[in-house]
Design a binder for these strands. Sequence first.
DNA 1: GAAAAAAGTCCGTTGAACGGACTTTCCGTC
DNA 2: GACGGAAAGTCCGTTCAACGGACTTTTTTC
Lengths: 258, 258
Amino acid sequence: MASEKTQVVTRVTAILNAIALHGAQGARLLDLAQETGIARPTVHRILQELAEAGFVEQRASRRYGLGSALYLLGLGAPSPINDFAGLKKVVHRLADQTGDAVYVAIRRLDGVHYLMRADGSYPIRAEIVEVGETVPLGVTFAGVALLSWHEPEAVEAQLLANERLRRRMKAVEMSDVQDTVTAVRQAITQVHERGYFFDKDTVLHGVSGMAAPIPSKTSEPYMAITISAINDRLPPARVDELAPLLLEAAREIGTFIR
Amino acid sequence: MASEKTQVVTRVTAILNAIALHGAQGARLLDLAQETGIARPTVHRILQELAEAGFVEQRASRRYGLGSALYLLGLGAPSPINDFAGLKKVVHRLADQTGDAVYVAIRRLDGVHYLMRADGSYPIRAEIVEVGETVPLGVTFAGVALLSWHEPEAVEAQLLANERLRRRMKAVEMSDVQDTVTAVRQAITQVHERGYFFDKDTVLHGVSGMAAPIPSKTSEPYMAITISAINDRLPPARVDELAPLLLEAAREIGTFIR
DNA sequence: GAAAAAAGTCCGTTGAACGGACTTTCCGTC
DNA sequence: GACGGAAAGTCCGTTCAACGGACTTTTTTC
């Protein structure tokens, strides 16, 4: 493993990516060392140096999070979304049409990051994720939809790797790993056949959702759009009814991104 | 210079920051080597490694720009703006009140990055900068307003350092360096006395503007708000009239940021 | 199409990066 | 409030990854 002919730069990027996956609450030094496979003193030293440059910040809890210098760099980095206003319009339209909550998420390393949400008129709302959150691939509806573009072996590896992270998710009762792997495999077949993923109770008991990958002009799908509601709002008949709307929205958004 | 006890991480951050300052058109290898003071082969190697991680991208022109991995990391980094919707409202209100173009910019390393723009109803519009652009500190109205929080020596160093960058700006006729330094010194005094900066013709012949630093709860000002219009729209009497509106907007926005 | 300039590559030398071992700080528990 | 286990932080001798001078290739300019 060690002899890739370069160390520090690769390590720096690995550490930053690892921190990103820990989201808002920040990452512990020990976790970062384990996840990157780098010795703890080394991670510590690199973190100090990154902190000096404002690329990471150490919170009061001693956990490390991304620093605001990265926010500023991010402003200058090319966004894959060419027309955010257009995207927004499509999402709100879908929320109006369906009455339910619509999310848009973007693939972010081994996770999905929730970019925006539009609420429909139906008063009962299931708050599975918040905008700005990053959740491991394969955990949420959008995450499964995007996972479907991976090789089967990669999928399985991902799911096992997720286990630890997944347990962190509040209010989620998980079935055991093997069950999950099988379930997600079936889900992936579904995405390939119908173009979208539908399921209930998997993410949060009582909540149904359907998610479609958003096609990209230049690469495999890296964004997804989700409709989510309580189980009673999404019986099979209504899923069939909503599917064309969901897929059309995905197609349209595909024209607004790289 | 060499013995700061750390190299690569500092260098990586320096290179990324240097690239950021080159904006959309990208940076040449040679420029980056000069600007960071690192030997060209070294910069080249680090760039290759960063490119592999998606942190930088090499364009067809062989120039280097920030990569989309940084966009994704930026999504997870803490934004200093707590309430973007509130900020937007204030800016649009000011544009409506004045009829002129209003910009909001954020300090970004040795430059200012333009975050948003709202147009007023007046039909003649001076497009000095575009949203998303980064311009060296002290070049635009907002840039001068923010420069006023630096130590005098730092200001002078900044201005001299800007000269090279500044020449790149399209359509800008510059007076010679000494004149500029003197002019900016006066401008800074003005900001300290009145709380805002007003000038005409400095940035672009025929264009006047006034800019106020936005106070931050937690640090010195790092954002600014600008009103800009053609000279005839901003005679001294109107400047006096607009100043309270500008300062009030700046104060309000200050409550929406860190 | 020659010359200049920039980009990219090679490789021997060396000091920055590494990480095992140690110390300090934090925090839950009784 | 002080004990103890766990995580964070520091030290320092060893070593190999990073460095950059010198060279080659590609691009641009005239």
